[in-house]
Amino acid sequence: MRLLRTEDDGWYVSIFSNEHNHPLSESREETRQWHSHSEIDPFLKDFVNNLRENNMSLNKVYNILNVTHGECTGAPFRKENLRYLCSRLAQDSISEDMRKTARLLDDMKAADPYLSVRVATDDEGSPKFILWCTGKNRQDYVYFGDVVTFDTTYRTNLYNMPFGIFVGVNNHYQSTIFGGVLMREETIVGFEWAFKNFVEVMNGKHPVTMLTDQCKSMEGAIKSTLPHTRHRWCKWHVLKCAKEHLGYAYSKKSGFKYEFHKIIDEIIDVSEFEESWSKLLDKYNLSQNKYLNALYSNREKWAKPYFSSVFCAGMTSTQRSESAITS
């Protein structure tokens, strides 16, 4: 069919053919390219939604649909159609999850009048950060909040949002949770918001010591929001990163691992540490190693001699935060 304009800005059919003038699409691969084949029936939508709720990736979902429709023909629609459907399902799920979160916090507030919740939203009104501390968290912090470990290793599976948790120990050396925070970004601004609001909820009490991993954003946020708090690196992360950066020395140079761990675990005198560190680098020809030089420049955050007068409540690692999440 061909349409042309009339002089009075109307339309008229100039050519019309009542017979097909192009080859028909014969294969499934051809027909599913047409917009008429882009619709996904309600049964398949429910099936896809169930797969996505069980954290199936888009590629895996599409492969499953191809198998269920037969290896020769495959799914009757394109992958782009499935991607669009999944994005719509995700938006619906986010809206519903946020409503559930709001209801859950309201229920918690009703049961615990001392619960404190802080929320920061973006320009569209969606939550960027959510921090909460229960009445018991706040009470425990009064007595045991001098030393806090903070870790964001855990991420929720669906939204990939880092979950940070503030943890300490009580007088029986048992792990004690002080609060939790969901974050959409691990930036200096994000951590500044988390630390600032955490301290405000805790009536302005700053930790004496705070243990984290070697995250630069956390370090910057601690400097700006907790200037009187002593920042310490988690020893476990230091050893883990050292093994990753010094794999050759760990595995091939006999004695290096033993001497390196001895410096970290046993030496408590500053001058002895400095001398032993220098001898270790000279002995194993590692004086120009960039990682060890960077580690040495930050020795006040992890080396024992520099914490002899700093209260750490016997903690050297953030693994209490990690274990508190999974327990």
Rank of each mutant, 00 (worst) to 15 (best):
K253Y: 13
M210A: 07
K253I: 10
A194P: 05
D213Y: 06
A221F: 08
R232Y: 00
K252Y: 13
F191S: 08
T212H: 02
V169W: 00
H237R: 04
H228T: 13
E200W: 01
V169I: 06
G190P: 03
L158Q: 09
K257W: 00
S254V: 03
L226W: 02
K257P: 03
L158M: 11
S251L: 06
G247K: 15
K252E: 15
T225N: 06
L211Q: 07
K257E: 10
R155L: 01
S217Q: 11
Q214L: 11
V201N: 09
F195N: 05
G180D: 06
M218A: 09
A249S: 15
W236M: 14
A249Y: 10
R155Q: 01
N203C: 08
R232Q: 04
H228E: 09
R230H: 15
E200S: 11
H228W: 02
I222D: 06
K252D: 12
W193C: 07
R155Y: 04
H206I: 02
H228D: 12
I188N: 14
H228P: 01
Q174T: 13
V167Q: 14
H261W: 12
K243L: 02
M183E: 13
M218N: 09
R155T: 07
M161P: 13
G179E: 06
I165E: 12
G179Y: 02
C241F: 07
K196E: 06
F178Y: 10
E219G: 06
K240C: 13
R232F: 00
C215T: 02
E259W: 14
S254D: 05
K262C: 11
M218P: 14
N160G: 01
H245I: 04
W236S: 12
M183F: 12
T176D: 10
A249M: 15
H206K: 03
P162M: 10
W193H: 02
A249H: 13
Y258Q: 13
T176N: 07
R232H: 02
H231Q: 07
L158I: 09
V208T: 06
L211K: 05
T176W: 08
Q214A: 11
M202E: 12
W233K: 09
E192H: 01
T176A: 11
P162F: 12
H237M: 00
S251Y: 01
H172P: 08
L182A: 09
N170F: 15
R184W: 13
K253L: 14
L211I: 15
F163L: 10
K216Y: 12
V208G: 05
N160W: 07
S224K: 05
T229G: 08
S251W: 02
F260E: 07
H172R: 14
H237D: 01
K240L: 14
I165S: 10
C241T: 07
K257Y: 10
C215H: 04
W236C: 11
L182F: 15
F191E: 10
Y154M: 00
F260V: 10
V238W: 01
